[in-house]
Amino acid sequence: MGYKTIIEDDIDVLVAGAGLGGTGAAFEARYWGQNKKIVIAEKANIDRSGAVAQGLYAINCYMGTRFGENNPEDHVRYARIDLMGMVREDLAFDMARHVDSAVHQFEDWGMPIMRNEKTGAYLREGRWQIMIHGESYKPLVAEAAKNSADKVFNRVCVTHLLMDEAKENRVAGAVGFNVRTGNYHDRVLLTVL
């Protein structure tokens, strides 16, 4: 049995692994690089892959600054105590200040989020959790990624990153194989970010 080698050239942004994070990244990448070539490689099917494949009935991190509930620094304080100090606070703060806008966009895309009928705030089941009807959480975000990406390679597992000879410590491409056929996928990544 021979294996084919498939080469995909001139990729500007390669998303290696498209769970909820990768599919979201492909969507955001289209905004920053509207004429760039965005390609997704995922070892399963992006409609149902990653930790949210089966749906998720809560969003476990939402500040609710809009409803006067928490500020990003409150979340950093929580994470610091929860992890006994072993936390990159700058990264936690950065994540916390952007997470609300992601949730508001999910609601725009059609995610059913439960609300308190009187106040209009999202219903919570914990200080950081909000309640959603999230059976189609992943398909909903995958839909956004499919609209944004130029090409989606399902069932392709990226195994190695290729380093750029011209510039030290820069990734220039990646290789992977199709988990079904064994076909070797070789693709070139031109970093834009």
């Binding site: 509207q34 895309w109 059609g110 059976e135 839909e143 609209n147």
Partner: peptide, 15 residues
């Protein structure tokens, strides 16, 4: 419910 909008209609066209 799995969505509040007709399927796929809520996504902006970023291009």
């Amino acid at each position: 419910p799995i969505t509040t909008k007709p399927w796929g209609s809520g996504h902006p066209k970023l291009s």
